[in-house]
Amino acid sequence: MQQEIFDFIEFMHVKAARLAMSSKQNPALLREDALAADWNRPEEDEAWASYQ
């Protein structure tokens, strides 16, 4: 019985981690919107054109 409880707790941790990674609560995803104004400029396209 104790092992089942531990397994369930581990399952809940994994589920919560997956939810956090796929949601907008992920800080990396939030930064993407904030930085898009700087990234999506003609000057940036020109600067990175040689790397494509």
Rank of each mutant, 00 (worst) to 15 (best):
M1V: 09
M1N: 06
M1K: 09
M1F: 09
M1T: 09
Q2M: 09
Q2S: 11
Q2N: 09
Q2F: 13
Q3S: 04
E4G: 01
E4I: 07
E4T: 07
I5G: 01
I5N: 05
F6Y: 11
F6G: 00
D7I: 06
F8H: 09
F8K: 10
F8V: 04
I9Y: 09
I9M: 13
I9Q: 07
E10R: 09
F11R: 07
M12S: 07
M12K: 14
M12I: 07
M12A: 10
H13M: 11
H13A: 03
H13D: 00
V14A: 08
K15S: 06
K15G: 01
K15V: 03
K15Q: 06
K15H: 07
K15I: 01
K15D: 04
A16G: 02
A16P: 00
A17C: 04
A17F: 06
R18Y: 08
R18L: 11
R18D: 05
L19D: 00
L19G: 05
L19F: 06
A20M: 10
A20V: 04
A20E: 00
M21K: 13
M21H: 08
S22F: 09
S22P: 00
S22N: 13
S23K: 01
S23F: 02
S23I: 02
S23T: 06
K24F: 10
K24G: 15
K24W: 05
Q25W: 01
Q25A: 15
N26Y: 03
N26P: 08
N26R: 00
N26F: 02
N26S: 05
N26E: 04
P27N: 03
P27C: 02
P27I: 01
P27Q: 01
A28Q: 13
A28K: 05
A28E: 15
A28I: 13
A28N: 15
L29W: 04
L29K: 11
L29C: 09
L29M: 10
R31C: 05
R31H: 09
R31Y: 04
E32T: 10
E32A: 14
E32C: 09
E32M: 10
E32Y: 15
E32L: 13
D33L: 04
D33C: 01
D33G: 04
D33T: 02
A34V: 15
A34M: 11
A34P: 03
A34K: 12
A34L: 12
L35A: 02
L35C: 03
A36W: 11
A36N: 06
A37L: 10
D38T: 07
D38C: 02
D38Y: 12
W39P: 00
N40F: 06
R41I: 05
R41M: 11
P42L: 03
P42F: 02
P42S: 08
P42R: 05
E43K: 12
E43C: 09
E43H: 04
E44L: 05
E44W: 03
D45T: 07
D45F: 07
D45S: 14
D45N: 10
E46P: 02
E46M: 08
A47K: 12
A47I: 04
A47N: 12
W48P: 05
A49W: 00
A49S: 14
S50D: 10
S50Q: 06
S50V: 05
S50M: 03
Y51E: 15
Y51R: 13
Y51D: 07
Y51T: 12
Q52M: 06
Q52S: 11
Q52N: 10
